[in-house]
């Protein structure tokens, strides 16, 4: 199972990022868990400054916005 974390302060962009990952995972039949991380101390631990950011299996794969659908699909297929 792929473990995703969406780092961000809970703004709309973070919600749509999490939604995008869940929707595409479902469409591709990939088993994922998506966790929204809002605690600033935890976000700091990933040394991310631009949110929303996406962490896949503890690696920061994207930061500073909502990823495109293609990007999300490529992460899901890399598994």
């Amino acid at each position: 199972m792929l473990k995703f974390k969406v780092l961000g302060s809970g703004c709309t962009k973070c919600k749509s990022t999490a939604q995008l990952i869940e929707d595409n995972a479902q469409a591709l039949g990939v088993d994922v868990s998506v966790e929204k991380v809002q605690d600033p101390a935890q976000i700091m631990a990933y040394s991310v400054m631009s949110t929303p950011a996406v962490v896949m299996d503890e690696n920061v794969v994207f930061k500073g916005g909502v990823p495109s659908k293609d990007q999300v699909v490529s992460w899901l297929q890399s598994a």
Binding site: S9, C11, P40, I43, M44, V48, M49, S50, T51
Partner: peptide, 16 residues
């Protein structure tokens, strides 16, 4: 450029 919702991560990034 940065979204105002990033102020906290930016604050912490600069601070650390």
């Amino acid at each position: 450029p940065f979204c105002s919702c990033s102020s906290i991560p930016v604050f912490l990034g600069f601070t650390s």
